[in-house]
Nucleic acid binder design. Sequence first.
DNA 1: GTATTTACCGAAAACGTTTTCGGTGATTTA
DNA 2: TAAATCACCGAAAACGTTTTCGGTAAATAC
Lengths: 342, 342
Amino acid sequence: MPNITLKKIAEILGISVATASKALKDYADISDETKQKVKSLAEELDYKPNSFAQSLRNRESKIIGLIAPQIVHHFFANIIKGVIDAAEEQGYLVITLQSGESYETEKKQLQLLLDKNVDGILISLSDKTINYDHVADIIKKGVPVVLYDKISKLLDCSKVIIDDRKAAYDATKFLIDTGCKRVAHIRGPLKPQTTIDRFLGYKSALKDNNIEYNESLVFETKDLTYDDGYGIAEGIFKSDEDIDGIFAFTDLLATGAMVRLTELGMKVPDDISIIGFSNWFLTKITSPPLSTVDQPGYEMGVKAFKLLYREIQEKKKDVNSPKEIIKIPTKVIPRNSTRPML
Amino acid sequence: MPNITLKKIAEILGISVATASKALKDYADISDETKQKVKSLAEELDYKPNSFAQSLRNRESKIIGLIAPQIVHHFFANIIKGVIDAAEEQGYLVITLQSGESYETEKKQLQLLLDKNVDGILISLSDKTINYDHVADIIKKGVPVVLYDKISKLLDCSKVIIDDRKAAYDATKFLIDTGCKRVAHIRGPLKPQTTIDRFLGYKSALKDNNIEYNESLVFETKDLTYDDGYGIAEGIFKSDEDIDGIFAFTDLLATGAMVRLTELGMKVPDDISIIGFSNWFLTKITSPPLSTVDQPGYEMGVKAFKLLYREIQEKKKDVNSPKEIIKIPTKVIPRNSTRPML
DNA sequence: GTATTTACCGAAAACGTTTTCGGTGATTTA
DNA sequence: TAAATCACCGAAAACGTTTTCGGTAAATAC
């Protein structure tokens, strides 16, 4: 079945393709009568403009690209959902790709999106990415790019991030406020900025509460897995430091640690309080339910798209407003792995 | 910066656009010398063919559409990942959309994808979808469509599904084999086929093991939420039926029920054994860890794409092989919410 | 030495849309 | 009545690619 085109409509009506096109777009130099005829015939034949032709002519695809390190991940899935919803509202569709935390695939996928002529790109850097030229290059080329969550300060573009430092500060302070004296920190892998920021937030909360920072209370992880948290708990249990609180880099680490410490006979939260990070679904159903920091992924996705959308519009009009960095506020969610506030 | 096109390459080299195009595609009627010149200049200038022009000319977008009821969902996220990976391998990109279990948006999004001229569509029906014309129409139009997970028998197209009936049979049999005498079933909402199939699997496992089916051992849910499972547990606890095993429609329901039953003083698995369905991540960290049925989402996504890919290829060649229905095998994952096998 | 094949290239149409730039005839204005 | 305005429409170029169909020169065949 041959597709129905403007040409066909024009032929049937005995007018030119140009007139048909303009009629559908309500150009002023087309009579109301012709407009009506074209519109109703288009309706009747269920005419759909060919998007390739439109894109070719208008130089825009109405598609954006989205790269996430992982898709099967509560936080990122929420972001993706937010992006898709916000995009759809503006008539944009989203091509999603995942780097799998690999620099090479991240680079390759960026190119795939560019090859498809997406109107803009939303990207969260992989943990392994230490060279940013692949992103810098496309920014330089004028492609609208917005970074979200895993960002780099070296990249000159708009960004949406969690205020990790403040969030970590709040979490740590919450432990202190609920009676913890010696708070440990299970930190993430060294590289990403989030690790550093949460660590700094932890440190400054200690400082502000007159607790001396003690390096041996900081435990490092590489994998961010449940098993990792589970393993690290051994060290915390055996430590001589009288640890009575843990601020973990993620809920998963916290959960792993909590399970192991419980197995080892410690009571949570009385012997040791634990707070995670992200408010993933699982935190509601651990025993005890895990206190955590809510990291609003959906909102982040929406904001990221809106930033990108603005840039896309501005590019069309050839204006250039300054880059923006949005910090999404977080909130401590107290549950039963920490003691109640006094 | 103006994009670099075939025309530009041709001009620089003093040849025609046609020759340039053919050189890049290794046409036999172009001399090796010209091919080399064109290729190296293209390389040097970083020439990227304009995808709109290609799509317009070739009538294919190398993009497929994917509609899922939910994105923030372990099972679907895995499927999406599988689809994206498999697609990328064949040079396809994926536009993902979520219906949010709404028939109206499902319908609308199908249209959005069609308007973008995707080469094919992968769709999992929303729970609320009871009219299938919107899908049937595009199948009739010749658009390659493959249904996955939430399917309808009324739709004539290829499908990829979990063998729900067998999976439920296995899960129920597993409870019986580990000593349960009176196995309850928390079933899903009435409509979707999965609910029915799992229920039938449950029933026939009972029958094959000479246990009489008892309607009052079947509990219905609407929401599939943790809270739903939690609430239903009340009824199970208060029941006079001496229930000693539960096969729940999903892990979440199972977890909710398990938590509530534990609160009510029952010991899992000794007083009551529980098995869930899906092997979501959370099952590893409940206490006790939840026995479940593994539902391989990733594999399902891969298979679904491959089916779709085949149809797309066949459509190009104008051949028409019969529709295929793939059933993905599942596996019982024994953990500690059920008793050990004797 | 003519006829035929071979090797290589290009003109042009096509995909379907959008928009510019005139160009009609009809109506107003001076 | 001539000149200016108006309302309406269409031809054609453009977006960048692909492919068909010749066409020309050189190489081979007879």
